[in-house]
Design a protein around this nucleic acid. Structure first.
Lengths: 203, 203, 203, 203
DNA sequence: TATGAATGAGCCTTCATTCAT
DNA sequence: GATGAATGAAGGCTCATTCAT
């Protein structure tokens, strides 16, 4: 009867899916994946339990949909236009962008850290994570390599660990964590310090 | 009179409690706190479900027992004999000890990170965590203060975040993470670099 | 739009709730509150255990729902139209109504007496009981007062105790207890005897 | 080795059994039969769970032991020396004794009322109850018969119901229930009033 | 006699998922 | 598309009872 086109239907469908994902993310982040029931999500999204299963096959499916959606955002966030060479300014920009990302959607990152420790769940999404992270690490490797560091891979892993550590603490104590100042510190260390400094003094 | 002395009972009890805690820790770390059922723990420990409740009042009680036991180890690990002033060598020693701790019991730290994102569960144990962490942070503040840093608190938070980040990555990829080399890097940064370096260059 | 109207759902819901309450009351009365498991109630009502929790939040909730439903019946049973003054005929009518109530739903009163001795459970419902009982006692007090009794409160408590005692024996031996004749006896005593009779003879 | 005679052993055993029964009665009355665990009873009696089973075969056995012990006390309380004929003074004395009994051991009577509504449990002890109650009822029948009442059995049942009702209310509200005054009332009614009074007025 | 470790069945409750409408 | 009734498996926990010592 109604002259709604297929397109319109699809649009409505996508909007509803998006709403569900949003509400689910909020709940997962606040209460944990296990502690969040499908009922609660449905209620929060203003639909019935049954209908939710019309949009997502299972709770796990909903979770992976959330992750994948967010990973796409991340990819488009770091626009991969550049040629793979990261100058100092670019690295600084990259680091800042990373933290910006965290600040923009702490809920997702909360979920991300939660899942990092659930191997069964992580398995569902880890390939997608790697798709995103691997190219970033490669670029980072080149950066440290260009800067003259002897073990760029080690430095890349160091950088990744530190960024995660800072994100972690920011998320766990958003209100008090001195994010800006610590951003400055880490940018100084990564971008403006000499390669492998003071090696002789250590040990 | 009594056919089994109190001592004997107590010993058996403590040993069995320890066994249960051990098995529970393994499972919690491997599968997550929520996903690990009391049944599974009991089976793993070779006892009946009912008996577990003879030793621990509840699942939560078992969890806190694990945490508290480990926290005690940690306190005794960093022997608090020193006078609160941390020389460079001591800071280096402290950082090394921290990583040693992680390496000795990665399962516990896996659990620790998992709990960090479960507010309801964290509440049960956070006061105990703070008892251990607060004095450490104070000593760290003094260290950076003595070293001439203008914002020692910021640096302490930076150090804590970085140590956690490194631990996190070590735990998530124990086999491949270049722990020793990264230890070296962070020790160099914290112990042997100048206060607030290259400030003018940044931004 | 919706394939089953709200009305329909509500109706089904209420009917099923009613069925569950009915079956639960039967079982509670026959076997006792503690001895009656949710499983048994569900089986008796022909539904799954899980569904029962769709209708009632807990076993306690089911119990209070039963009680409250019955209390409402009682309130409407003694229509409170009168002005609070109880003539002899009214008192007689009141007593007869009381016993009628017991006879109509002995299962509920069996439950009522059971609960009277379970303080933890009684606490859940006692305020509701008092809402019903208090006004009755006030009217009774006035009746005895008007009749010239010096201590109407004592007589009200006596009446309450006696009515409960008779109900108790009726419930415990419904088949043989000579209810009608005993009703007559108590009505004679309360309605047609003189105030504080034979005081001098006693003791 | 120790020169304790068999008698002494038996005595000690009986005392311990008595202690357990006492503590169990207290707990049953306070918390209910089902809600009282064997563990709690053992702890309260200062012995181990295992030992309790040395004295009583089961929880039910413990319960029946408590009931039987108390029933014996009751029998000896109403010394059955008299010839079966109950004069007015004797009836008065009997009623007073009944209430005295309640007042002396309200815990037991609380338990008694609790059990009255648990058919499965009642079955275990009801024959013992009847052994005690039946002769009392016979004597009562004779009393009312002698007093000229046409239906002594009805009056006996009335008396029993009323005594139970009063006991019930006394137990449920020991502090406020005007026991003495109500004793007086019921004694007046039973002992000093005319047979089948005011019959013509009723109905 | 005396202990408490040990069991196992059963209890209340939750929840992902399915299905008739 | 949309609803919520319905299921069944599982989870945490309790407790009467047994048993080795």
């Amino acid at each position: 009867m109604s002259p709604k086109s297929n397109e319109q239907f699809k649009l409505i469908r996508e909007e509803k899916k998006s709403l569900i994902k949003q509400k689910a993310l909020e709940l997962f982040a606040r209460e944990g994946y296990d502690k969040t029931s499908i009922s609660k999500i449905a209620k929060e999204a203003g639909i019935s339990k049954g209908l939710l299963y019309n949009y997502f096959d299972s709770k796990e499916d909903l979770l992976t949909a959330i992750i994948f959606k967010e990973m796409e955002k991340i990819v488009s966030f770091f626009d991969p236009n550049h040629d793979g060479v990261l100058e100092m300014q670019e690295m600084k920009y990259f680091i800042q962008k990373t933290f910006e990302l965290i600040k923009q959607n702490p809920e997702f990152w909360r979920l991300y850290f939660m899942l990092a420790f659930q191997p069964q769940v992580m398995k569902l999404v880890e390939h997608r994570f790697w798709e995103v992270i691997r190219p970033m690490m490669q670029v980072s490797n080149e950066f440290f390599s260009n800067k003259g560091y002897k073990e760029p891979i080690v430095w890349t892993r160091f950088l990744a660990a530190v960024l995660d550590g800072i994100s972690l603490h920011y998320i766990l104590d958003t209100d008090n964590f001195p994010m800006e100042k610590i951003e400055e510190i880490i940018i100084n260390i990564i971008c403006y310090s000499n390669p492998e400094p003071q090696k002789n003094q250590s040990q």
